[in-house]
Design a binder for these strands. Structure first.
Lengths: 227, 227
DNA sequence: AGGATAGTGATCGTATACGATTTCATACCC
DNA sequence: GGGTATGAAATCGTATACGATCACTATCCT
């Protein structure tokens, strides 16, 4: 459950080499093995995975469609870079679909799940004291996963996952842990949980979830402007 | 401009056979030549377009990712069918991203564009009197295009386009023209234009745009339940 | 006659091969 | 010496070929 329960929408057949290549390359991007700018050569990856170039090519194309890879004709593919504008657009889009997903999920989240989420949030608070950004980030993802996983609309859920993947891919070079913002974030999480618990209206929950991410974006912008 | 100014996000290289196949098949689906359930055989399409199966396969995969095609391993591809649940999800997702896109565009729409949109809306009103559903639908698309086309966030814009494409693909068998709803729709369009003109807040515009589509969905649900 | 089963055809998935385009380095000319 | 042209290497894009899987039919057994 803590492990990526990303049930992503339609894909290639589960056992196919194409799917295998997709998972492998995507994993290495999201995990950080392939950092932005890394050159993805079809032949090399194919040899590395022990498959032909055709499935690899298909995998790269899927990753391109998800914005994780840039693919130029007759030139090659590279892991998508860290364009601040792109970051802004991704965050903005995510704030919208994430807000919607949370609002749609809210009525379907049971007390057990809320308790689980709250425990995570408390542990995040501790991470702030011990300064453990890595665990904090992981917990943050799991926390929101609990809020999403009941979203009945698979399209919206898929969009949320794609956004998270993009951010994960950029994380290593873009994301910087800002303790001040992180502390606010934990409070916003608690507020969100409360809203869900008391059965607040969808509009209110959506707005709160959206602002939660917008605030992160604002913190990023403020930080970069202050350089 | 009236013609699909769909500048869709990353794609295959413009001149490639893959892109050519993609455009051809997508066009036939959206236009209605290939209706839901139509069997897409890679070899046949390849021969038909005068290319190999590899680019065709790639095109089909892209269409699958966009939800226009269903592709089963070792079985074949068919044009995506008319699952009422899927229709509901698509409309719900569209109401969200469309609302956001409209709100983001609003401040950037100039008076000329608004006048153009209003003219379209008035012509739609006339279409109701002469009962011309085809032209009404076309005008409706163009009307909303005017509202979208200035959306600064390309991701959101892309999501809106994908939603419209899915609806276009389903149109021929799902969509039924409901004059009562259409008349309300025209009024909502006018309200939207007014909100934009007076420089209403983003929240208000977003809510209005979202409700505009939700109302269409509701009308559909009411209609099917009354059968 | 009904159901299971083997055979046949069709279709997809992948590998390999080749041509086209780009990139980079080297040599040449001015 | 600097800029340009030429060549080779690398990489992608596509075609073709073959194996794997699935659906469908006709036959055989009970």
């Amino acid at each position: 459950m803590t492990e990526a329960a990303l049930t992503e929408l339609p894909a290639a057949a589960p056992g196919s080499k194409s799917e295998q290549a997709y998972q492998a390359v995507k994993g290495r991007i999201v995990e950080g093995t392939y950092t932005p700018g890394y050159r993805l050569v079809l032949g090399s990856i194919a040899k590395d995975l022990g498959v032909s170039v055709v499935p690899v090519r298909e995998a790269i194309r899927r990753l391109e469609a998800e914005g994780l890879v840039k693919f130029e004709r007759n030139v090659g593919a590279t892991v998508a870079g860290i364009d601040p504008t792109e970051y802004l657009y991704t965050m903005q889009t995510l704030s919208i679909v994430e807000g919607a997903a949370t609002a749609l999920s809210a009525p379907l989240i049971d007390a057990v799940a809320i308790a689980r989420a709250r425990a995570m949030n408390e542990e995040m608070r501790e991470c702030l004291d011990h300064f453990d950004p890595v665990r904090f980030t992981k917990l943050n993802q799991d926390f929101h996963s609990v809020l999403f996983e009941h979203c009945p609309n698979p399209h919206i859920l898929d969009l949320v996952h794609r956004g998270w993947n993009r951010l994960a891919a950029l994380r290593s070079s873009t994301f910087r842990f800002v303790p001040g913002r992180a502390r606010d974030s934990v409070e916003e999480h608690e507020n969100l949980l409360t809203l869900i618990e008391i059965g607040a209206g969808a509009d209110e929950i959506e707005k709160a979830a959206r602002l939660h991410r917008s605030a992160t974006l604002d913190a990023y912008l403020r930080q970069t402007n202050n350089l």
